[in-house]
């Protein structure tokens, strides 16, 4: 693995970001440096140049660092993130922030499929749109999408909240467990056992909080709420066609 000094464009000065240029350094060296013990103290801010669609950028972070990526990233950027704040000034490939535990990941552009798949916590903000399976098997994460989400979003969602400021594609919330979904625009179709639910005061309040946290300017009252009908929780022969 390349030493930290080899991947730096310029040495860290005060709170100036540590800059890594991926046109010369490799992703392995970048991640190794981001995993260094006490990284939050020694280099709390990072800037990544020329990501050029590379995969696995800034994965497995476990410290309160801020990473800004200037450009488009490939698969799994910020995968399994803990504590860190990762901002992508571009589009993200498959599985951005997959299995995130905590922290914040913000995509300024669009996100490909399976954004925040299986994520347990933290906040993913996609300012553009997210493709299919956004929030698939989500387990506690909060996801706020400024635009639309593709089909099968929140499939098997177990916990957490998905907020869609635009429209949702087919089979939203299929086989949903306890995740909650808020959609402002239209929903093409609901998946198996996903039902529209009443928007009560506590839902308006949590939605307002999520929109604020994500920096989205939208009126909570314009959203509809969806959740699990809980009719598939235990096998029943009359539901056989839904399995």
């Amino acid at each position: 693995m390349a030493a930290l000094s080899e991947v730096l464009v310029e040495p860290p000065v005060g709170v100036e970001p540590t800059t890594v240029d991926l046109s010369t350094a490799d992703v392995r060296a970048l991640n190794g440096a981001l995993h260094a013990p006490r990284v939050a103290e020694t280099s709390p801010r990072w800037r990544v140049l020329h990501p050029d669609g590379r995969h696995s950028i800034a994965v497995g972070l476990d410290a309160e660092v801020e990473v800004e990526v200037d450009g488009h990233v490939g698969y799994y950027c910020a995968g399994m993130n803990k504590a860190a704040t990762v901002t992508i000034n571009g589009n993200a490939g498959v599985g951005v922030a997959e299995n995130m535990m905590s922290g914040t990941v913000r995509v300024r552009g669009n996100a490909s499929q399976s954004a925040a798949a299986t994520a347990h916590g933290g906040l993913l903000v996609v300012e553009g749109s997210a493709a299919a399976r956004c929030g698939i098997s989500m387990k506690g994460v909060d996801i706020v999408v400024g635009g639309d989400v593709g089909h099968m979003s929140a499939f098997m969602g177990q916990a957490g909240r998905l907020v869609v400021c635009g429209d949702a594609g087919d089979a939203l919330g299929d086989s949903l467990y306890e995740a909650r979904i808020y959609v402002q625009g239209s929903v093409k179709s609901l998946g198996a056992d996903c039902v529209e639910k009443e928007m009560r005061a506590e839902h308006l309040a949590e939605l307002a909080q999520l929109l604020t946290a994500a920096g989205m300017d939208a009126d909570p009252a314009a959203f509809a709420r969806f959740g699990s009908g809980r009719s598939l929780y235990n096998f029943h022969v009359d539901n056989a066609s839904a399995y």
Partner: peptide, 22 residues
């Protein structure tokens, strides 16, 4: 949920290596 097929698997394996520093 976030990969299908051998090409994706290669990327997924790489991600797991990156997370755990190889």
């Amino acid at each position: 949920p976030d990969w299908t097929g051998p090409d994706d698997l290669e990327i997924k394996i790489r991600e797991l290596r990156e997370i755990t520093d190889w």
